[in-house]
């Protein structure tokens, strides 16, 4: 069975290279996805994430990838990382309101916390409802780098505490997975998460 992981290239910065490096380290085969045809050809999809919600959605629209993602969401596993997790939701509030992909019924808002933002650093996760990509990782720490958080009441996989605030650190619904942290910056725990995703 072919098992090619497509990393969607959107936005100017992207941390595509570190995600690619980490997936290869986890034993995966990577294809960088720029077009609809490439998206349809890969087996699993990763939405990496650095940048703003609005720019990311604009770029996905420009590349005509929004509709294609909606077409394949039933058949292909999708993993959104950081901003990539945020755009899986219905609505973002960064630089004005922007509609997201709508796979998870939630909104993305500035972190409501009485502490320094962005939240940077390694934090642990509290499992609410485990899933296949978290297998064996319940007690690990992951690297966070974000100013916005996903606000939802369903499909929550884990929570994480920052100062006295608990926020959603990963989500899961059917074939859609999202992690607010950066597995590609989370040492061996991150590589294991990618291995779990490859093995889905």
């Amino acid at each position: 069975m072919s098992n090619v992981i497509g990393i969607v290239n959107y936005g100017v910065a992207g941390n595509i290279h570190s995600v690619q490096k980490a997936i290869e380290k986890a034993g995966g085969k990577v294809k960088i996805v720029n077009t609809k045809e490439e998206l349809l050809a890969v087996d699993k999809i990763i939405l990496p994430g650095v940048g703003s919600f609005r720019d990311a959605m604009e770029e996905l629209h420009n590349k005509e990838l929004v509709e294609s993602l909606k077409e394949v969401v039933q058949e292909k596993s999708i993993l959104g990382i950081c901003l990539g997790m945020q755009i899986l939701t219905s609505l973002g509030f960064e630089y004005g309101k922007t509609a997201g992909l709508g796979f998870i019924n939630a909104e993305v808002k500035p972190m409501l916390v009485d502490a320094k933002v962005p939240h940077l650093g390694f934090s642990s996760i509290e499992v609410i409802k485990s899933n296949a990509i978290l297998k064996g990782l319940e007690n690990e720490e992951f690297y966070f780098m974000h100013s916005y958080e996903v606000v939802n009441y369903t499909d929550i996989a884990t929570l994480t505490s920052y100062a006295n605030h608990k926020f959603v650190s990963s989500i899961h619904k059917d074939k859609v997975y999202g992690v607010q942290f950066h597995p590609e910056k989370s040492r061996d725990a991150g590589i294991r998460l990618f291995t779990n995703f490859i093995e889905l």
Partner: peptide, 8 residues
């Protein structure tokens, strides 16, 4: 900051 995000 506008292009790459504040955290960068």
């Amino acid at each position: 900051a506008r292009t790459f995000g504040n955290q960068a």
